[in-house]
Design a protein around this nucleic acid. Structure first.
Lengths: 119, 119
DNA sequence: GTAAAGCTTGACGTTGACGTCAGAGTCAAG
DNA sequence: CTTGACTCTGACGTCAACGTCAAGCTTTAC
């Protein structure tokens, strides 16, 4: 497929897809005309890119992460476990933030309960 | 304390602290000279701001979140549980990303094991 | 074969979270 | 009362992840 269809199917703008290629996240083939040609695998790849971006990673980090994510076979990458570790560390920071908010929420609930002991 | 000391104690630049105030995340008192004056509570506040930024929230989101985070007493905020929900949703996206990477790592381990059955 | 739709490469604009001066006022020490 | 450290308010610079044209090919439809 060409860039327009991939954009429609992924919800990512054409500009975004070209940007991802610029950053080394996608490597589409080219027609003699210069048109980019994508495969079904690229649909999944874009989905992963969006996922990792939404998780707070930069395109540079994603560029390191993508070879770790396999579609069919592919070769092995020694950095993979390190990347899982990095993601886990990111998750831990978020857990900490959630924990603080939850604790404060609980404190507020306590205050509310005290403020109206009978309802 | 004044801005320099808070910067040293939090690791956030003076520019950063002024930016946080600009975004409504801090509201320091002022001396007649115009100098900002911070309290010990601001040290904790800055710590939380950094935590939430590192977790991938914007200053606008943090501005909504901060009144939910209580130091001593303070008043209650009805948005608090919604914010915990938003944070939880963010965490879930990260969990998903971790899950995908972990699955791929496991696949790679399987491939590696197959590639060298005896060593 | 021609018009519309789709694609190309620039290249400048935008937003968020600051960095980095510039020019000027303020405070602590001697 | 001057020097040096600290602080103030602008205001322009930066970097990432795109948005938004512009000008010009290519492919599709009729």
């Amino acid at each position: 497929m060409r860039i327009g269809e991939l954009a429609r199917r992924t919800g990512v703008s054409e500009r975004g897809l070209r940007y991802y290629e610029e950053q080394g996240l996608l490597r589409p083939e080219r027609l003699p005309s210069g048109y980019r040609v994508y495969t079904e695998l690229d649909v999944a790849a874009v989905r992963r890119i969006r996922l990792l971006l939404a998780a707070g990673l930069s395109t540079a980090q994603i560029a390191e992460a993508l070879p770790c994510m396999v579609d069919e076979d592919e070769l092995l990458q020694p950095t993979c476990s390190e990347l899982v570790d990095a993601l886990a560390a990111h998750r831990d920071r978020i857990e900490e933030a959630i924990g603080e908010l939850a604790a404060t929420r609980d404190n507020l609930n306590t205050l509310i309960a005290r403020a109206r002991p009978a309802g």
